[in-house]
Design a protein around this nucleic acid. Sequence first.
DNA 1: TTGAAAGCGCTAACAG
DNA 2: CTGTTAGCGCTTTCAA
Lengths: 385, 385
Amino acid sequence: MLDFPAPSPTDHRVRDPDRPDPDRRAADTDSPPPARQARRGHGSVTLRDVALAAGVTAITVSRYLREPQVVAGETAERIRLALAETGYVPNKQAGGLASGVSNIVAALLPNLANSIFAETAQGLSDTLQAAGCELLITSTGYSLEREEEQVRALLGWRPGGIIVTGRRHSPATRALLEGARRAGTPVIEVWDYQAGPTRGAARSFTQVGFSHEVVGRAMADHLLQAGHRRLAYVDSGIAEDYRAHERGLAFAARAQEAGAGVTHLAAPKGDPFDAGRHMLQAMLDAPARQRVTAAAFANDHLACGALLEAGAQSVAVPKRLALLGFGDFSIARQLRPSLSSVALPRYEIGVTAAQALLRQRAGDDSPGHQALPWQLMARQSTGGG
Amino acid sequence: MLDFPAPSPTDHRVRDPDRPDPDRRAADTDSPPPARQARRGHGSVTLRDVALAAGVTAITVSRYLREPQVVAGETAERIRLALAETGYVPNKQAGGLASGVSNIVAALLPNLANSIFAETAQGLSDTLQAAGCELLITSTGYSLEREEEQVRALLGWRPGGIIVTGRRHSPATRALLEGARRAGTPVIEVWDYQAGPTRGAARSFTQVGFSHEVVGRAMADHLLQAGHRRLAYVDSGIAEDYRAHERGLAFAARAQEAGAGVTHLAAPKGDPFDAGRHMLQAMLDAPARQRVTAAAFANDHLACGALLEAGAQSVAVPKRLALLGFGDFSIARQLRPSLSSVALPRYEIGVTAAQALLRQRAGDDSPGHQALPWQLMARQSTGGG
DNA sequence: TTGAAAGCGCTAACAG
DNA sequence: CTGTTAGCGCTTTCAA
């Protein structure tokens, strides 16, 4: 970080000739003035510079910036001018250090490129920016170790709030987050909505999302209601995506409750469309007694791959095989047959989490958990629409 | 921002009983001790607390944290213990203020949800995180006014580098960025690679991207080489996306050079697949003498919409109408006919920009411009693959 | 309505 | 190898 000079058109820097001279200060004491090299500023325009140009002191400029109505009209006018003249940009590090308040919000998401989390990031960004907050964002790659490391680093900025993904964290992460929350920093968990990390435990932090267990069951229900008795759940290739696994487990549990057969498959890594194509092939190639009539997928890309491959191989969808996605990406309703899927509040999770955070920052200490609505979109690939 | 207590399991806060008492300090002078209320800390564990627990002074702990090899083995051991005991988390605001160096990198992108910029964000994040930097990200919504506002706000954090999108900025933004750069802060422009904002002008900041003019011409060339003489360019619905417009202008210029006819169309706002479908319809409905035989699109979503609508209406692609996208989203090669498109270094732009920034931060003051490779993927929709 | 003094938590500079 | 001193640029507290 280097400081920068005034960006004003005329670019005449206002330097303070009165800046206290450390040697002179030292002379106030009884000891002889040591010939120390004074530390100089980092070169940027400071409040003092503006104050000097306006003929007031720094604190008055500071006040004008924070509560303009307290400053007298004529003084305010001079400060306004000085501000423009010097091109002052307030140093937020100094401000945060002095006041103990920062407008930085830290967000940890598994991935920024994935359209699911990208839209959440957009929702966070839109809402926080409107409230004058800045977004410090990291991607954990679904790793709890990286999450821990990043939480630790981000806390160094003393953020005004923290947003993490999901309810599962390492013990150390949990301790750090709990410490932060005890000290009054809002902590929000997004993309999940369920009692604590272990079944039955209470919620630790504010949750904004939905229950993957409930969605998983609903996905099974949808296929069961269409009369299917031999189901498959195709999990994503990401081993650490516990939410996809939870949906799969709930899906299987519901199917078994209903006396239907369930196969659990795991998609290979790599391009998810290709993985979906591959999984369709695998289901077609399965021995007759393992053959399924309906498959649910961990995401729409996998499901679309399967749908396209089915088209290429003239496998009748949903007649021979019904397909159900998750995420309702915009491609889902464009294909023929159209893909049934679960529409998610991707963007809304970001907006709602940011709002909850801002509310808590403003002093509201209600838990603020929010179960957000999702919707199973029944389309042609499962015999609907 | 509120500070947080030690997150150590035992959570025994180490508070400094020796913390200098301001009243006692005042007593050193000749004036009578004023009964001022001392300002208290913000409640977090500080370097002093750790130092006290380790039986050293703050500066030694600070040194241990920054250059451990300078500290004696036995002292280091005690500090290590004290660090763990207190659960110290360094205050980066204080550190940045004191040292004038910050590991924050600010990035301004038009949009975080758009898969193009989302992947760039991921590239930035991956590379900067590996280098110990933090990413402060904002979305401008393609607005130069918002960009200006955000640059101003972000500079308040005295970032170690700034990444902006494109080479067009408001004059005030430009002045701010130039001030920052003069002071040694790297400024990188991504997603463009062209001489200055006005034709012929020199580049102002380091550019990492590609020339949209060259790509636009290449898109026209591809269609011309396939024998098309009546072309269309379908621009995006985003009025402020000057890069899409530049591609369109270059596309038209190249077509006209070759004596071919060109129509410029603008897609409506809203779902880009639907917009693409709508534009296909518009082209089919055009009067015979305006009928085109090939269309290039501002992005793959528009092109896919058109491709799917063509399929639905049994319009032969590429026989009756060739279609060419931009972006090479993964769906492009999945559809039948597969969509020709321009593959872009979406992720690489982020990685390369971050590397350039880190290099400049480390003192390399070469311009560091980087033209990144793109590739026209000739597939079935234009008679290839 | 404005100012003086002190301090936020840390690091640079120098001394030992 | 460790400590002392001063100061980064701002805000809080109190006084006028």
